[in-house]
Structure formats: structure tokens, C-alpha cells
Design a binder for these strands. Structure first.
Length: 576
DNA sequence: GCCGTTTTCGGCCCGACTGTTTTCAGTCG
């Protein structure tokens, strides 16, 4: 069973226990554990070989949870969970996803009305049974009916890239108001998470009512869900088809609290729990209004002030996940994060030779316009028949065309590359003598991803040991690890890459973001050069670079860690 | 259920908003 599946068992257990009214701190222990397990880079099935004791070295895993983990790994199930599932139908757990309805209300609905499915819930609400329950009323019944419509939607999250234009429009329109002095986005969007569940916007203003009125009247706002003195929650209409309706929280705060509020609402929750504990230890209190010693205001105008009051340097939002930012801060070793402007080359893209939409020259011109100094054209190899992949002869002809294109454009270098499949039998899709002629070889797995872990590992290791392979694309949990039974041993793969001078790619395409932040951070620890590539299939594809940068920053990468921040000559030296 | 330079008990971050109440519990972030 994969780590993320095991993590979701713990999350499910927490949901079920919560419906039974279990101690809140016990629930937190399960949820913390689920979060930690989900972000491990080594398979739990392997770690569990060392027994319960070995698992207890994982933060947040104690005696009880380590024993449960061993049971799960050995038997594939957990008796306690099975038992709870029998007591509480899955439809009841689904009710927890209705906005505005929590465990207490769901438990009441289940226990007092015997409602066990969402359909029954809708019926009960429509017939007035819900409003008749103690502690419930007409409003709650209406909330449930409305929420039921959103349940399916609310499971989705929205790509950062899709939320960006929405955020920009709203922030810009609020910034234009007379009474607004500062406005900015906070939350998971500001932390540059790959996806966002909702949006948080913060403002300082001389007239908070004007700001809230303006937001309510914004063309992107579909409905005001709640409004108070300092806080307004709205539902947005989608900017594109197929993107879910985001909810947005606007908070209007005093100028002296702006930094504290930014810090508070940027999160993450886990980062802030550490912040608040640290404050307590220093005899201080931190909330969204500032840092206080007793009643006395100590800091809060800027985030830097807040961190300084706690004896900390400013920590970049992307790092605020309580992973290792506090250790790095203590060691004075917070990284200076790579930015999108640092990138000089893009090393993964397609043309009309295979499944791209633009010619070599068009891609080169678009890359140049984007400010890039070099690119690698990396069309598919023959195994990818669906994309009209190239065999040796077509590839050599394609490289000749690249050479011709070089003569028609100046100011950008074009490398002759190939995205070569690593076949199911662990050999490469093209012969070594062809790969040897390439400037740049991206080795990837497209097929046979459900093979056993050992075979997947073997394929990756073989590619890494092939001296003609420049970089491994798609190596992370995204493509491989999340497929049951096919997790890879990251330390083995990363160690091999480090030993052989093989790079690792952060694939920036939003829907196949690969080598995510957690794995990129692990790769950095092994000293592997990392390239951030767009996998562009059209001239518009380069905008995706930002997604890769987001992951790189969340991984704590600097310009030194990212190979394609170097100029072409320095970059060539890194290619083995 | 986890954790410990206050270590085997007693803590565990903090506040806003809503609805159903008549002073507060539930939910959310």
C-alpha cells in the first residue's frame, strides 16, 4: 500500500472518530500523522521492516500509531477502522464535506434522524425534519441544501496557475479604491502551493465597508456568504469552464496589524502553530493583530517585524510548512530562493515533429521573447506512437532541421535533444549511438508504470547509469509513486543520480507537475543538479515555468541548485 | 494520541462569524 493511501486511512479514522465525539487532540494526532506520512519520500512498507520502534523515529508517530502502521503494512487493513466503518455509513462521512456543517451537526443528523446518505439528507432538509432538530433551524436546513450542490465540486482544488488571473483581477480592483492603502493575497496561494482550495485577501483601508461593498459588486463575485466588521466571505464565479467556484475571504485589518495579519493568514496552519508556541515560550502572544506582551503591542506592521519579535529572520512564504524552515532559520541557513527571472534556459519542449503545435523556429522565437538564452528541443521517441514519436532516422533528420533553424535566429542557442522513453525492459527506446549524438537527453517513463517497484527502480537506475542520459524526467511520486505497488526507492534513485552526475527535472506543466516540492528538496539534499522545464507543447507553454519555480521555491532551492539558471557555457559543463 | 532542558502527566494556537440561543456552541480558517 502506498504512503498516501495509508495517510488517507488515518484521515478517515480521524473523521470517523470525530463523528463519535473523540478528543480533539487525539484527532489532531491522527491528522498530523496522516500529513507527515503523506510527505515521506521513502515507502512506509520499507520503513516498517524495522518494526514499530523504527517508525517511532517519525515525528508525530508514537507507540500506538506505529503499531497501527505495522498492522496496515502487514495485513493491508486496520481492524479499528473496519469496526468504525461498520458503525458509521460512508454517506455520513460524506456529510462532513458540506460547508458550514461539521461533525457535531452531522452526528446529530445521523443519530437522531437515522439519515445515512446524501439523498436522504436532502429529503430530510426539504421536508423540514432538519429544521426541527435541537440546535438546528431554517437557516441550517437551507445551508445544507445549498451545500449539497457543492459537495462534488468542493472536493476539487484549483491549480495555482488557474487561480492567478482571478487573484490578479480582484487584488487590482480593490487596490484601485480610494480608501484602500494596502491589499495583498495571503493563504496557500501566497505560499505558492500547487493547488489552492480557497483564496485569502487582506487589505488595510480607511473605510472597510467600501472595500466589502466593492468586493460584493465585483463581476467575479457570485454571492456573499458571510459579512462581518472585519471579514467577508464570498463565492466567485469561475473564470474558465471546468474550474470550480472558488471561495474568497477578505479581511480588512488596521495598518498596525497588517504584517501580523499577513503572517497569520498566509499560514500554513502548521507553521503558525510553531510560531505561537515559540511566542508563548518568549512570554509573548501572537494573533492576527500583532505580537503582544500582556496588553502591550510589540510588533505587527510588517511580517519582518513579527518574525523579528520572535527572534527569527523573515521566512519566505513558500517555506512556511513546518518542514525545516525553523531549523534553517536557527542555523542562519535560510536559502535565497530561485526566481523565475533567474532561469536562462528551458530544456524540455515539443514541436510539430511529434505532438507539439509549433515549429522549431516558432518555439525558439517564443522562448527568446520570454527572455530565455537557450532551449533544448526534445520531441518524443518512437515508443510514444500516439504522439508520432521519432525513430533514429527521423530524429537525425529533425536534428538537421534544428541546425538549419539555428542559422535563422540569433540571441538564443538551440540544443538538439530527445525525450527518450525508458522501456518496460529497462532498455532505452533509441540506440546508444544515436543518444550519443544528442546535446541533451531527457529519459522518461511513459509506459509500464504499474510494474512492481523493483522493476521501476531498475528502469530508472539503468537510465541513470547510461552516460548519454542527461536528465531524468517524470521521476517523482506524481507519476510513479502514487500508483499502488510501484513506489520507487527515492534514496536509491537519488544516490545513483548523484553518483553518476545525472540531473533531475522539475516538470513545470501544471497538470503533470513532477518532482514536486518534497521530492525536489530530497534531491537537493543529495546534491543533484535540478532543471526546471516547461514541457511546452506550444508557444504559450513557457508561462508554465512559474509552476516549476513555485515548486522549486517550496523545496528551498537556490540558483546554485537549479542548473538552468547558469549561462549556456556553464550549463554545458554540468551535462555529463 | 503525542510529547518532554518544567519528562510519565497535563498540556496541546487563536479569534471571527453564524445561528439559535438569551450567554453560547459549532464551524471555519
Amino acid at each position: 500500500m502506498h504512503n498516501s493511501e495509508i495517510a488517507s486511512l488515518f484521515d478517515e479514522l480521524a473523521d470517523l472518530l470525530e463523528l463519535q465525539g473523540a478528543n480533539a487532540f487525539r484527532l489532531r494526532a491522527y491528522r498530523n500523522a496522516a500529513r507527515t506520512l503523506g510527505s515521506l519520500t521513502e515507502p512506509l512498507s520499507e520503513l516498517a521492516q524495522g518494526g514499530a520502534k523504527a517508525l517511532q523515529t517519525i515525528d508525530g508517530i508514537g507507540k500506538d500509531l506505529s503499531e497501527k502502521l505495522v498492522t496496515i503494512v502487514e495485513t493491508g487493513e486496520l481492524p479499528q477502522l473496519e469496526e468504525l466503518r461498520e458503525q458509521i455509513p460512508s454517506g455520513v462521512v460524506m456529510m462532513l464535506r458540506i460547508p458550514g456543517i461539521g461533525p457535531k451537526k452531522v452526528a446529530a443528523i445521523f443519530n437522531e434522524l437515522g439519515v445515512t446518505t446524501l439523498d436522504q439528507l436532502r429529503e430530510a432538509a426539504e421536508q423540514g425534519q432538519i429544521a426541527g432538530l435541537k440546535g438546528f433551524g431554517a437557516k441550517t436546513a437551507a445551508t445544507i441544501l445549498e451545500g449539497l450542490d457543492q459537495v462534488e465540486q468542493s472536493a476539487q482544488r484549483v491549480y495555482h496557475a488557474d487561480a492567478r488571473p482571478i487573484v490578479n483581477q480582484i487584488v487590482e480592483s480593490l487596490a484601485a479604491l480610494d480608501s484602500v492603502t494596502q491589499v495583498s493575497v495571503a493563504g496557500s496561494f501566497r505560499r505558492c502551493c500547487e493547488t489552492v482550495g480557497d483564496l485569502d485577501v487582506l487589505a488595510t483601508a480607511t473605510d472597510s465597508a467600501q472595500v466589502m461593498d466593492a468586493l460584493a459588486a465585483h463581476p467575479l463575485v457570485e454571492k456573499v456568504l458571510a459579512r462581518g466588521e472585519t471579514k467577508q466571505r464570498v463565492r466567485l464565479s469561475p473564470l474558465f469552464d471546468g474550474v470550480k467556484k472558488l471561495e474568497l475571504d477578505l479581511r480588512v485589518v488596521p495598518v498596525e496589524s497588517y504584517g501580523a495579519a499577513m503572517q497569520y493568514f498566509t499560514g500554513s496552519k502548521e507553521h503558525n502553530i510553531v510560531i505561537r508556541k515559540r511566542a508563548q515560550e518568549l512570554g509573548l502572544k501572537v494573533n492576527e493583530y500583532g505580537v503582544f506582551r500582556g496588553e502591550e503591542y510589540v510588533a505587527g506592521g510588517s511580517e519582518a517585524e513579527v518574525y523579528a519579535a520572535l527572534g527569527l529572520p523573515f521566512i519566505a512564504p513558500e517555506l512556511r510548512e513546518n518542514r525545516r524552515e525553523f531549523d534553517l532559520a536557527a542555523a542562519g541557513a535560510l536559502p535565497e530562493l530561485v526566481t523565475v527571472d533567474d532561469i536562462q534556459g528551458d530544456l524540455h519542449m515539443h514541436t510539430t515533429a511529434t505532438d507539439g503545435q509549433a515549429s522549431i523556429l516558432e518555439m525558439a522565437e517564443a522562448a527568446k521573447a520570454r527572455g530565455l538564452k537557450y532551449i533544448a528541443i526534445t520531441d518524443h521517441s518512437k515508443r510514444v506512437t500516439m504522439a508520432n514519436g521519432l525513430d533514429s532516422a527521423r530524429l537525425r533528420a529533425h536534428w538537421k532541421n534544428i541546425d538549419k533553424a539555428r542559422g535563422k535566429i540569433s540571441g538564443i542557442e538551440i540544443l538538439c535533444g530527445i525525450e527518450c522513453d525508458i522501456l518496460e525492459d529497462a532498455t532505452m527506446d533509441l540506440p546508444d549511438d544515436v543518444l550519443a549524438e544528442a546535446d541533451w537527453v531527457v529519459a522518461v517513463l511513459h509506459y509500464g508504470l504499474k510494474q512492481p517497484r523493483d522493476q521501476i527502480n531498475k528502469r530508472l537506475l539503468n537510465a541513470i547509469r547510461n552516460p548519454h542520459v542527461s536528465v531524468i524526467g517524470h521521476p517523482s511520486g506524481r507519476v510513479i509513486g502514487k500508483r499502488p505497488g510501484a513506489e520507487i526507492s527515492f534514496s536509491e534513485v537519488f544516490q545513483a543520480a548523484a553518483d553518476h552526475g545525472c540531473m533531475m527535472e522539475i516538470n513545470a506543466h501544471r497538470s503533470r507537475l513532477d518532482l514536486d516540492d518534497v521530492h525536489a528538496a530530497a534531491a537537493k539534499d543529495f546534491g543533484i543538479p535540478i532543471v526546471i522545464s516547461t514541457d511546452a507543447h506550444s508557444v504559450n507553454g513557457f508561462v508554465e515555468l512559474q509552476n516549476g519555480i513555485n515548486q522549486a521555491r517550496r523545496a528551498g532551492l537556490t540558483t546554485d541548485d537549479v542548473a538552468n539558471t547558469r549561462n549556456i557555457n556553464e550549463f554545458r559543463k554540468l551535462i555529463r
